[in-house]
Amino acid sequence: MQKGAEEEAQVDPPEEVESGEGAASLGDQEPEGFTFFSDHPLLTFLLKRLGWMALTLWIVFTLSFFLMRSIPGGPFDQEQNLSAEVLAKYKAAFYLDKPLAEQYLLHLRNALTGDLGPSYKMADYTVNEIMAAGIPKSLALGVIALIFALTLGITAGLLSAIKRGGFLDRSLMTVATIGIALPNFVIAGILILLFVIWIPIFPAATWGDYKHLFLPAFCLGAPFAAYVARLTRTGMLDVLSQDYIRTARAKGLSDAQVLVRHALKGGLLPVISFLGPAIAGILTGSLVVEKIFQIPGLGTHFVQAAINRDYTLAMGCVLLYTTLVYVMNLLVDIGYTIIDPRVKLE
């Protein structure tokens, strides 16, 4: 509450909003804990971005709405056993018999109130319920995939950069290239054969404990790990050739100290900027992995909704993905300004 109030109170002075420099220097005089939140550029930045997000969502909603309905076959047309009379009544019950423009306005109005309607194909649930059940699962999968991507990627990148040109470097980068090239369902197939069928240490599929997430998260994270490894290597090599590193070495610091205290911060910048697209990619890229490993997350719902012409659920997933990707990118942008002082919000 207090923080919010402070934000509100600080909106007024116009000169601070205009100049990022001024705000930053002002911020320096603030009590420590609050600096981050009282920076005016941040608030303006957030408001602006949220405005854009609302517009983006509306465009996505409109496009998806009409695209979905332009594909042949509706949600109830696929059930062969329905007689024509029953079909007509079901279409009427879900407004599917109304003109498209009217349907659009009805759905838009409902969406604005946060009601995405019932799922056409899972009649026991509303779209909101299905998504609420799916998000934590996809998120858990994504988070672990990201942890894999970062730990494996950064470690491999660092080792490569240190042993530049050596055997280790070349083999790690070969693996990374393969990792980028292989689609994750191929990786999944290989891993299942290895660790489920031949050496049964992981379950084949379904949702359960951490063991159930290991393989899917690895498959999902692997291409990103490979990418992170390459980025880390490039970034580190770039930094290691800088003058200040030579200075650090000249001061007599050990290799490890130079690496951790001086080189890492600069060397990881490319990885940080890759985080935005990576998070977005991991979240939206889980469709195939979720299907192979039967993870009841958003990806599975999204694919099935498209196949089943479950308009409402498909729309819910599209909007949710848009929001997630947008928010993640926003967070990464903000995070970047914290890590790299040269970057300012605008």
């Binding site: 299942i192 084949a204 379904t206 099935q304």
Partner: peptide, 18 residues
């Protein structure tokens, strides 16, 4: 009752005793 749509996944589950 599991709702596994992919029958390759289903077969894996059967073969691993699930």
């Amino acid at each position: 009752i599991l709702p596994v749509e992919d029958h390759v996944t289903g077969l894996n589950l059967y073969l691993t005793g699930v």
